[in-house]
Amino acid sequence: MGVYEEKKETCGTICLKYLLFTFNFLFWLAGGVVMAVGVWTLVEKSDYISLLSSKTYAASAYILVLAGAIVMVTGVLGCCATFKEQRRLLRVYFVLLLCIFLLEILAGVLAYIYYQQLNEELKQNLRETMINKYQQKDHEHITRAVDKLQQEFKCCGSNSSSDWATSIWIRSSESAHRVVPDSCCKTPTELCGIRDHPSNIYKVEGGCISKLEKFILDHLKIIGAVGVGIACVQIIGMVFTCCLYRSLKAEPY
């Protein structure tokens, strides 16, 4: 009877080991996805981040990059802890899982909070940024971001093209009599911004605010979903880890 119970426990332990190993492999792949989403946000969309006064959007992406990197390291550690059957490593692995879980929940919460306040922030700050910092010394990154925004989203001005009438640069001699930046033009060429007829420039209802808001909201959904989704999957890993830990603890040395 004792031999049967010992074999039963050993079989259960082996099953847990392979389940946890499979989880760790999938977890490692998920870590790569999490990190990729964060890096993509920071690298590909860094110009748009510079147009936002709040750092919440960037913070969510940095948290995902950090969490993704830790996930990949933790996945390897989890495999080692599983096959070596070392309870000390399993404890470390569980603590790391818990830390990553909290980081990703934090990223998801930050994304949700920023989702709620984004519209108001854009209304208050985008127009001011565009008219006061475009083509100004020490704000070259803002100029690049605005030009990219207007060309990529086919818009002109924060609310409308008329916003550029109060721009510091447009009202200066450096604008060479342009009424809007050349990036507002449907076919950008040198000095094409002199003419603001709808046939020449983008006239979009809601301006660039509506376009940028939609883009960021869509991306925040991705950040939030990835953060919370992976965090929920980690609960399974923590349950498996606890079960294996208790199984190993029950076995004789």
Score class of each variant (00 low, 15 high):
residue 247 S to C: 09
residue 145 A to E: 08
residue 60 S to F: 00
residue 48 Y to D: 03
residue 93 Y to T: 02
residue 219 H to L: 02
residue 253 Y to R: 14
residue 18 Y to W: 15
residue 210 S to V: 12
residue 187 T to K: 15
residue 132 N to C: 13
residue 49 I to D: 06
residue 72 M to D: 03
residue 68 G to W: 00
residue 130 M to T: 02
residue 167 S to G: 04
residue 243 C to K: 04
residue 159 N to K: 14
residue 63 I to E: 03
residue 25 F to S: 05
residue 201 I to G: 01
residue 29 L to T: 08
residue 165 A to N: 11
residue 125 N to H: 12
residue 221 K to M: 13
residue 138 D to A: 11
residue 227 G to I: 05
residue 18 Y to C: 13
residue 149 L to E: 06
residue 108 G to V: 06
residue 103 L to F: 09
residue 126 L to R: 08
residue 76 V to L: 15
residue 127 R to G: 03
residue 92 V to R: 03
residue 191 L to T: 01
residue 208 C to G: 13
residue 16 L to C: 11
residue 43 V to K: 11
residue 230 I to T: 10
residue 96 L to F: 14
residue 135 Q to R: 15
residue 78 G to C: 07
residue 121 E to N: 07
residue 141 H to Y: 11
residue 26 L to K: 05
residue 33 V to D: 00
residue 123 K to D: 14
residue 50 S to A: 15
residue 84 K to P: 02
residue 131 I to F: 02
residue 16 L to I: 07
residue 42 L to R: 15
residue 95 V to I: 15
residue 79 C to K: 09
residue 175 S to D: 09
residue 80 C to P: 04
residue 214 K to V: 04
residue 70 I to E: 01
residue 114 Y to T: 04
residue 133 K to P: 01
residue 225 A to G: 14
residue 115 Y to L: 10
residue 20 L to M: 14
residue 120 E to A: 15
residue 224 G to Q: 13
residue 172 S to I: 08
residue 59 A to E: 12
residue 192 C to E: 08
residue 212 L to P: 01
residue 230 I to Y: 04
residue 119 N to G: 11
residue 174 E to R: 03
residue 28 W to D: 02
residue 10 T to I: 13
residue 235 I to G: 02
residue 212 L to H: 04
residue 142 I to M: 12
residue 44 E to R: 09
residue 160 S to T: 13
residue 189 T to K: 11
residue 206 G to N: 09
residue 171 R to F: 04
residue 202 Y to S: 10
residue 215 F to L: 15
residue 71 V to L: 10
residue 203 K to L: 13
residue 40 W to H: 05
residue 118 L to A: 10
residue 158 S to K: 05
residue 1 M to I: 07
residue 15 C to K: 12
residue 35 M to Y: 02
residue 96 L to P: 02
residue 187 T to V: 15
residue 12 G to Y: 06
residue 73 V to Q: 01
residue 32 G to P: 00
residue 41 T to E: 10
residue 240 F to G: 00
residue 182 D to H: 04
residue 209 I to W: 06
residue 24 N to T: 08
residue 249 K to D: 08
residue 169 W to K: 10
residue 39 V to Y: 05
residue 144 R to F: 06
residue 143 T to G: 06
residue 63 I to V: 14
residue 29 L to K: 01
